[in-house]
Nucleic acid binder design. Sequence first.
DNA 1: TTGACATGCAACCAAATAGTTGCATAATAG
DNA 2: CTATTATGCAACTATTTGGTTGCATGTCAA
Lengths: 109, 109
Amino acid sequence: MIADEDKVFKALADVSRRKLLDRLHKKNGLTLNQLCEKHDMSRQAVTKHLILLEAAKLVVTQRRGREKLHYINPVPINEIYMRWIGKFEQERVHALHNLKLALKENDHE
Amino acid sequence: MIADEDKVFKALADVSRRKLLDRLHKKNGLTLNQLCEKHDMSRQAVTKHLILLEAAKLVVTQRRGREKLHYINPVPINEIYMRWIGKFEQERVHALHNLKLALKENDHE
DNA sequence: TTGACATGCAACCAAATAGTTGCATAATAG
DNA sequence: CTATTATGCAACTATTTGGTTGCATGTCAA
């Protein structure tokens, strides 16, 4: 069973949090202050979002002196896909993937 | 771009709505009343959830006389996976690698 | 036609959410 | 040491969310 499926879904439900994940995806290991730049809200608001992302284990953190580094953790998203989304979509996604491969192969000819 | 990415994520954020999708996945084309059975809430609460699922295009409906039939639609979930979740998964190994490096660095202190 | 059944609509309520501000604490640079 | 920087904590607020109840509408069966 997924430990905190609900936490993951709820964490992903907010566009600000998805944007934070996007930023960590582009550049991993950002500090809180770095994550606050380019976001139109207070540092404390960002902190709260990061707390939820951490609780959902979508982000893991590490202290370096007075800084807190944030790293994206893809495992929960993978689990969501494997155990929940997959049950609806697995066959379809695989079919599309195979189709894409086939078309790519065709390109090479 | 995904038309209503936010609506889909928000629709999936509630456990009652995920359970409704589960039930439609097991047996498609259920009426509102059938969906209300086995759920510990009023018919109107279920209706509201179904409205959100419909708005996110996760469920499509069809009238048959005085009944309303509900069908699961896997397309939005597929899009979420392909365009959003996939981009994290592609980098999964890379991200884990960075995390491992960071933790290792911390060890050296 | 009339009563029962299936769904729709609107007003209301409590709790959760997303945000704010102000102050506290801890680490680093000079 | 002291000032600055980076983060943490707490109280407060407005809005959204998930639920309720009551009544209305539309369809079907007897």
